Amino acid sequence: MLMLKRKTAGESVFDAVNILGMLLICFLTIYPIWYVLVNSFNDGQDAMRGGIYWWPRVFSFDSYQAVFASPGIMTAMGVTVAKTVVGTAAHVFFTAMVAYAVSRKELIGRNLYMTVGTITLFFGGGLIPYYLLIRDLHLLDSFLVYIIPAMFSFFHLIIFLSFFRDIPEGLEEAARIDGANDLSIFCRIIIPVSMPVVATIALFHGVYQWNDYFTGMIYINNQDLQPIQTFLYRVVAQSSSNQMVAAMPGGISKSVTSQSVKLATMVVTTAPIVFVYPFLQKYFVRGLMIGSIKG
């Protein structure tokens, strides 16, 4: 019969301190989100009195109605969804393809490519040269500005490399015997067996694409091509929020404020990725572990 070892007083205190510390960290992480959510569902004028911490005092959907009634929000949401889906697919495929090529020992100039790529992790050209490059490529005010510049990441290439190096060479040799070329091997063998790292990179880049507001703010002047995060940036600005409130019908504008509109907009723009993230979080952990454990 197994005897359970009784914890010492020191071990019990240590466990209690750890539990309390983790609970405190969870509270500090979750409560700000809860505070924004609660105040976004409260009447804007009533929220100005303060004292709302755990639950709406005067429940109201008027702030959300004001957000969805604002011109351009559905277009901005559509742009965000489109650039997230297309941009993530293009980024994963192109970065994986380059990583597969670099992982081949017979590639000429392989070490040079790795050296140049490593330098780019530490040094950049700056915003002005990058803007001039985007302009010369005729990507200003174009949907492709979200896709083409973000198709490749050397950091993600390193993650792909760590995974590709563990793939048995026998798989490729068998495919070549059957007459497959490099593209067929990559699409039919490498990608299917690399789904864990593919899902990891897709999640990394998908979150980036969804949260990116800077690209739309700097390189896009056409509001029909601006993503939801750039729309949020404009709403958070005090002048934009006041204009939005002033444009609402009288029954709504009396119960909302610029602050309540900001909070509601934050919830609308972050809710989709917040709901998706918990289901895909395991891929983050798996991505961090890629290449660190053999066997």
Results as ranks from 00 to 15, higher is better:
137 L>C: 08
279 F>D: 12
118 T>A: 07
41 F>Q: 07
177 I>V: 15
89 A>K: 01
34 W>L: 14
224 D>V: 06
126 G>Y: 06
76 A>W: 04
9 A>I: 14
138 H>C: 04
19 I>K: 00
190 I>H: 00
154 F>V: 12
215 T>K: 02
199 A>E: 09
88 T>R: 00
287 G>W: 04
106 E>C: 09
147 I>A: 07
87 G>Y: 03
129 P>A: 01
112 L>C: 08
152 F>M: 08
147 I>H: 00
249 P>V: 15
192 P>S: 01
23 L>F: 12
45 Q>K: 11
121 L>V: 13
253 S>V: 15
256 V>E: 06
219 Y>H: 06
246 A>W: 05
172 E>K: 01
280 L>I: 15
197 V>R: 02
56 P>G: 07
248 M>W: 07
30 I>G: 10
189 I>K: 00
293 I>H: 02
70 S>E: 13
258 S>M: 05
239 S>I: 07
163 F>W: 06
119 I>A: 06
46 D>Y: 04
277 Y>M: 12
3 M>H: 08
226 Q>A: 12
58 V>L: 07
88 T>I: 10
268 V>N: 06
274 V>T: 14
144 L>D: 03
284 F>A: 10
181 N>E: 08
8 T>Y: 05
239 S>L: 08
24 L>Q: 00
55 W>Y: 12
66 A>K: 02
145 V>Q: 02
288 L>M: 12
104 R>I: 14
271 A>D: 08
82 A>K: 02
290 I>P: 01
99 A>E: 07
232 L>N: 06
35 Y>F: 14
155 F>V: 10
168 P>E: 03
129 P>Q: 03
71 P>W: 00
135 R>T: 14
121 L>S: 07
233 Y>T: 07
235 V>S: 07
5 K>N: 09
285 V>F: 04
137 L>W: 04
267 V>D: 05
235 V>W: 00
281 Q>H: 11
274 V>L: 11
8 T>H: 06
100 Y>F: 14
17 V>M: 07
97 M>I: 11
131 Y>S: 09
84 T>Y: 01
284 F>R: 05
288 L>A: 12
235 V>R: 02
43 D>Y: 05
168 P>D: 00
81 V>M: 13
125 G>M: 11
293 I>V: 15
80 T>L: 14
187 C>E: 00
117 G>S: 03
224 D>K: 02
23 L>P: 13
81 V>G: 12
8 T>F: 04
95 T>K: 03
73 I>V: 15
20 L>E: 01
36 V>E: 09
6 R>Y: 02
78 G>Y: 07
268 V>A: 08
136 D>A: 05
174 A>V: 14
255 S>P: 13
176 R>N: 11
138 H>Q: 05
267 V>A: 12
173 E>Y: 08
221 N>I: 03
218 I>C: 06
234 R>C: 06
51 G>N: 04
141 D>A: 06
22 M>P: 02
280 L>A: 15
271 A>P: 14
237 A>T: 03
199 A>W: 02
232 L>V: 11
213 Y>I: 10
256 V>I: 14
272 P>M: 13
24 L>Y: 00
126 G>D: 13
60 S>Q: 05
278 P>C: 09
153 S>K: 01
79 V>Y: 02
